[in-house]
Design a binder for these strands. Structure first.
Lengths: 136, 136
DNA sequence: TTTAATATTGCAACAATGTCTCATTAATTT
DNA sequence: AAATTAATGAGACATTGTTGCAATATTAAA
């Protein structure tokens, strides 16, 4: 790790965009919220740097895009990306769920090191709206 | 579904490459095995067609690449992509594990529709080799 | 079997996502 | 304040995948 030695305004802006969001963000989200204040390469480099430093983590969506999220519940000692991610099929946001993923026992002979898991469905907000629609 | 109406040689070749493989394959794998006998667009289109027809399924790896695998254990009536995928960190193959994924209960308010899950670690072959190395 | 209809293919251009180089700028150290 | 070093912006490039369209192959019709 030879990265992120200076705490610049650029980095602060990116970090604050991410802190203000309750869901994981992709490059386009950052670009939009920063209104072209920052170069594409810079955004990607800073996000990669934060990942290398263990401050955020990546989630690759089923659309092939990479999303970035703060490591809210990862301690410094024990960095754990193995939690669940949830993608809402209605509002299209991806967010972290703090419950650890329990995977049914693997067939013998396999050794598990990490889990990357995205559940899709309705998030609480969208499920509520959905139910209200049906109720009408 | 308006696809794959003709069973051409091209499709047969792609299907046989996939049948012969015990792991999921990405575009490059097909291109390599078919030795430039076939155009990129054709390969992608046929794979997409097989997906639409429910004969194969896609897995998006953590590298952002899409892998394709036969639906070995999906019946026609009940198409189930919600099984586990395993990526070996040593031989770098991605394969399907037929065990269904059991996810620890979601927080209330969420409604799960599908699961996309990739476990990484050592596959049986590579774990054996690893252990033999250590034993020496 | 020959013709007509239609699906498939190859090619090239394009699109989206992300990375790299390198000159310039900004932050830190001396 | 000057020197050092890290970060940034700009554009070119890389990779993965898609699209439009003319040419080809397959199937259906005559």
């Amino acid at each position: 790790m030879e990265k992120q030695k200076r705490n610049t305004k650029t980095k602060q802006m990116i970090m604050s965009v991410l802190s203000d969001s309750s869901s994981a963000l992709c490059y386009d989200d950052f670009a939009e919220k920063l209104r072209e204040k920052m170069d594409k390469a810079t955004i990607y480099r800073i996000l990669q740097g934060f990942c290398d430093d263990g401050m955020i983590h990546k989630i690759v969506g089923e659309n092939g895009k990479t999303y970035y999220a703060l490591c809210h519940h990862c301690s410094n000692e024990k960095h754990n990306d193995n939690h669940l991610h949830f993608r809402c099929v209605r509002c299209e946001t991806i967010s972290c769920i703090d419950e650890p993923v329990s995977i049914s026992p693997l067939p013998s002979g396999y050794k598990m090191l990490a889990v990357s898991c995205i559940v899709s469905g309705y998030c609480p907000d969208c499920l509520t709206e959905q139910n209200e629609k049906v109720a009408k």
